[in-house]
Structures are given as C-alpha cells and as structure tokens.
Write a protein that binds this DNA or RNA. Structure first.
Lengths: 357, 357
DNA sequence: CTGAAAGCGCTTACAG
DNA sequence: CTGAAAGCGCTTACAG
C-alpha cells in the first residue's frame, strides 16, 4: 500500500527521489568513493588527477549532488551549527543582533539554530539540551542575567559560550556589549549642557548587567558634574517594558518632584515615560526632557521623536560570532570583553528645562 | 605538543571531555549498546527488562548522557531540522511569526535553522543550498514573491515547503496568510462609516501577494460601497518602506486631490503618509485619516496612534509549522491555503472627514 | 528480553 | 594518484 505509487518505471515526484551520495557518483564515474570525497573537498582536491576531478565535478553538478554536511560532521566531529539563545525574539533589539551573527557565521560555513529561551529556568535548560543534542559547536547567549545559572550550566557542560548585549563579570565567557558608562556620560552631559540640574534615572532591572552598568554610569556622570544630592534620583523599573517604565516614572516624580529630565533605562521605558507625562499633562520636552537607550526602530517616529543612545547592534552580533568562532578554533584563547561605542542621537525629546528656554 | 596538557591524570577542562555515547554507557552497565539505544528511545523502552532499563537510565543521568540527534538522524534519515527563510529578520513582522514557528516545532522535537535570504537571487539559492546540505526536512518560506523562482527551485529539489505571510497561486505549496480581502473590507467599511467618500489606497508592490490581494480587496470594497470613479484611487509603493510610502503618498494626492482618507499597504507605508502629511501641514485625522496594516509593535505610540489591521502573526507561524510538519509526515497531503482572520484596531488616526465633524 | 551485524554518508590515515 | 578499510554515534531488522 505504502508503495503503491512507486512501481518501477513510474517517474517519482522529486520529493521521493533519493538524495544522491558520493557512492552514487563514484559508481557512475567508476572510481572509489573516497576519490569523490577528496574531490568535493577543495582542500584535498589537489590529491586527485585533474582530469578525474573535473569529470567528477561535472557529474556532481549534473546530478545536483550536495554533500551531506551532517554525515561529514558526524565523522569530523564538527556540526557547523551554532546555537543562538534569545530571551525573546520579538524584542526589537535582537533581530539586528541575530542578523549580524548570521552574517558572520554564514561567511565561515556555519549556520545558526535560533531558540527562544524565555525566562523560565526549566525551559531554558530544555532548550540548551536540544541544542546540545544537535551537537552545536558553541552558543551565543543573549539571555544572560547577572550570575545566571544558565551560564553555570553551560560551563559545566564545557561548551564554548559568548555573551552578547548583556555581560557577566566572572570572566568565564567573552562578552560583547555596548559601553554603558560612556552611554550614560553622553546622556547626562547632553542634559546638563541643556541646563538641566534635576535629573532622574529609571534603571533597568538590577538582575541585568545593562541595568546595573547604566545605573553606575549615571551615578558617575552625575558626580562628575557635581550635582548635589537631591538634584538627582534613581528608581528601578521591574522590567524593560513600557508599562514598568510608566510605573517607575510615577515613582521617580515622587522621589524627585522638581525633576526636569529623565534618563530612561531603555527606549521601552522611555515610552512608558511618555505615557506617564501625557497622563499628567506634562509636555515633553517643554516640561520634561527624556532620553532613551537603544534607538529601537521607529522611535524617531514617536511624538516627540526620541533622543536616545544608539548602540551598534548589528556589529555586536558580528563581533560575538567572530569571538565564538575564534574560541571554537582555539579553546585556550583568553576571554575578552568587547565594549562597542554607543552614540547619542539628539532628536526632539530633549530641550532646555522650563524657565530657561 | 598539541597534547601537552592532556597527560594522564590531569583533570581536563570540561570543554575537552569526550561526549559520552551509548557505547560508554553500555560498557559500564555491561550490556550491548543496542540495549542502551532501546532504552533511550521511549518507544522501544518496553523491549528491555525494567530492571536493566532503570539501571541504564540512572547511569545516563549521572554521566550527563545526551543522545546524539545528528547521528540518529543520519541513520533514520530524519534530521529534525526545519529551515526558515526570511527576507529580512529586522522587519518587525517576522519575529512573532518566527516565535510561532519555533513554538510548534519545539513541541514536535524539531528545531529551526533561520536564515536571512535577502533579495538577491544568488544569495537566496546559496542559503537554500546551505539548508539542504544540513538535511533540513522542510522549509518555511516567508520570502516568496508572486511567481518566485526560488519556489521553483524548491519544488525542483523536491523539498516540502510551506509559505507564510505571503502566498502563491499555483497550489504547489500550502500557504498561511491573513485574509486580505476581509482586511480591506474592514478598512474601507470603517472609513465609509466615518463619512469618507474620497479614499485612496497605497498598494504594496504588485510583485508580492499581499500587495496584489490588498489592492484587489480595496477595489472590491470600494465597488461594494458604490463609490464612483473619481472617488477613489490607487497608487503603488515601490516597496514596503516608510520612504516609499512617503513618495507614494505624494503621488496619491496628485491622483486624487480631494482625498480625505488613505488605506495604506502596511504600517511602514502609513508612517510614510504621516511624514508626508506633516510636510504638507495637513493634520491627521482632522484633514486626512490613515489606516495601516499589520499592527506592528509600537504603532500605538505614534502620534496619532495608528488605526490599523491586526494580523495574527504568531498564529500564522504556528499554523505554517503545523502544516509543514503534516506534509513531512504525509507527503501526499493536499496543499491548502489557510486564511487567518485579521481585525481592525481603531485608534486615533481615523475620524470624520473635514467639514463633517 | 538481548546480542551481533549492517548501514546511514561521510573523512582520513594507511598502503600501494 | 587511488583504493580499501575503519569509524563517527546511532537504529533496527534478524536471530536466538
């Protein structure tokens, strides 16, 4: 029954045609299949007579031969697969990072397996196990929180790991991040130069490296400018979301009633600030200036267009992939932290403080 | 030299520890490795004595054994890999689709390989070849244009394919799309009910199924409402981008000077309309109403918040993955077109036409 | 219930 | 320059 339509002589639909293998080719050219294998690999091609090689290559082309990378990988112990673990692909920061990763990987003959790991521990482990069962040669983690147990799990398993976007401080893995300290310096400098003297910061969750580092950066900048206590305040958003930003913004106004400028932990948080200001009937930037972080797509189309920090997301992906590949080649390579240079993009959400225009 | 740090007795870093295989386990429990194999597979586990099975399972746990899916796949001819081909991961429509795909795949023990195929023919073929070399069992294509040669290539190769977001009309592949006709009916009905009698449509590129179908849907809706010729117009945007939308919007005003409402091909195009209206000093929605399509993230934060069509992106991904999986199981399954139900989300960019408020 | 064997599609020393 | 063989880590008829 199952074979009712595969009688001899009937042309099978392509989907049922057997994939062609080196053995098929070898039989047809009448050489041993190891010779075919040598020809298919550019690095060993020179080992076989040119005439034979061209004959094989031509036939391979004709038959649409495609070497089975998976079989090769089994033999060579290299799958050519890299796992990319994201907390949430729908977060607009990740797609460009992923694009950067994929670009570099492709150039080196690798291919990414992308998974959404979410936030639950159990799911994260499951996903990593899936990846490992597929023999991924390394992992790019964009999920990591400070002291992330997932990281411990990876190290325990002995798989090469690099972190992107968020960092970690134990030095066990290389990280590619944007320079948060510089970013916050740019932000605060900009605000101060506009005349602001009462500035609040809505920090991201302290469990993330970005949350912590941006907060530190803010504090340093504020001290460098000798803002006195009472001229600045920091509150923490529960998460990097618009809604958490809105709530944190409310708290910030309680902590620092006279504030004229807000450095938001990221653009989503900044959007939450917009929401809050609108509710309160406060105008941006006339009453309160807002600076975001990330330069997400389309924040230039908000009203007002958001002044924010642009982080080189695509680059981050590329660098992370390169670091990982290097580490796979040479496992002894020292871990490094690559800090990429962010830049301030001034748009319409920042201006002089009220009464100073 | 290369082995200088792997002398006997020295504890190797984890990363150099050999992966444990069924043979290792078998040797330790003193059974044949085929027995271990049977135990590891839930479907054949009942074939072995319970006592033996538990002993093996326990050891596997202890040694952190993870069956090599790739080796298994080589033997069973099933890689458990699905290729997902996107035109551009950075386009906000795709991440949720991808999330939907991945969710279903994961539930069935599959894992996605995601690639950005871009728009160049050569790159697209290269990318598909890469995927095929990895023995992907099927492909989800989100790239497809009408009469896409890439599709021909896939069929020629005989690989199961399903299309998502964009469709194709030859019936060779199943498609999962949003119902464009309904979407445009909702859009035009909404506009007409607000009192608009002069409505323009900025169509997406005719080379995409969405561009063509939405245009047709617009025409049908307009005729159903018996709008006379001269009361509507259609222009085509060169691409689904903000800038192309801005240019097309300018053309639209030339084609239909008295227009009071625009049905944009998608949200990016709608943003281009916002840009154009602002340039011209026209207010939205007081002077001109605008409806988008897709309900991209954060279009609710634009000024005015964009009235648009929400398409069930996550669902589309899920359905596409399910269809593909079904087709892989039963290649003879008829191809289907699944049209998902979009809905109108009314926000601030639509209102009564001027002089009728 | 368990073992022994063949084989998935490759790569790569080892001979010749 | 080419062939023959072993083996990567599994699965699965086939015996017993």
């Amino acid at each position: 029954m199952a074979h009712s339509n595969s009688q001899r002589g009937v042309c099978l639909p392509m989907s049922e045609r057997k994939r062609v293998t080196i053995k098929d080719l070898a039989a047809e050219v009448d050489v041993h299949y190891s010779t075919v294998s040598r020809v298919m690999n550019p690095a060993t091609r020179h080992l076989v007579a040119e005439e034979v090689a061209t004959r094989i290559l031509k036939l391979a082309e004709l038959r649409g031969f495609r070497p089975n990378r998976i079989a090769a990988g089994l033999r060579t112990q290299r799958s050519g697969l890299i796992g990319v673990v994201l907390p949430d692909i729908a977060n607009p920061v990740f797609p460009p990072i992923l694009a950067g990763i994929e670009a570099v990987l492709g150039r080196h003959g690798y291919v990414p397996i992308v998974v959404n790991a979410g936030v639950e521990r159990a799911r994260q482990r499951f996903v990593i196990d899936q990846l490992l069962a597929r023999q991924v040669e390394g992992l790019v983690l964009a999920t990591a929180e400070r002291d992330d147990p997932l990281l411990d799990y990876c190290f325990q398993l002995g798989i090469p790991v690099v972190m992107v976007n968020r960092g970690e401080h134990t030095g066990r893995a290389s990280c590619v991040v944007s320079d948060s300290q510089l970013a916050m310096a740019l932000t605060v400098d900009h605000l101060v130069s506009l005349g602001h003297r009462s500035i609040g910061h809505i920090a991201g969750p302290a469990s993330t490296s970005t949350g912590e580092l941006r907060r530190e950066g803010f504090m340093q900048a504020v001290k460098r400018h000798r803002l006195r206590r009472g001229a600045y305040a920091v509150v923490e958003a529960e998460s990097y979301t618009r809604e958490a930003g809105r709530r944190a913004c409310a708290q910030l106004f309680e902590a620092l009633p006279g504030l004229t400028a807000i450095a938001a932990g990221n653009d989503l948080v900044a959007m939450g600030c917009y929401d809050f200001l609108r509710e309160r009937g406060l105008r941006c930037p006339e009453d309160v200036s807002v600076v975001g972080h990330n330069d997400m797509p389309f924040v230039d189309a908000l009203t007002p267009p958001l002044t924010t920090i642009r982080i080189p997301v695509h680059d981050m992906g590329e660098q992370a992939a390169e670091l990982l590949l290097r580490r796979i080649e040479k496992p002894q390579t020292a871990t490094v932290v690559i800090e990429l240079r962010p830049e301030l993009v001034v748009r319409g959400s920042t201006g002089a403080p009220p009464g100073q225009g």
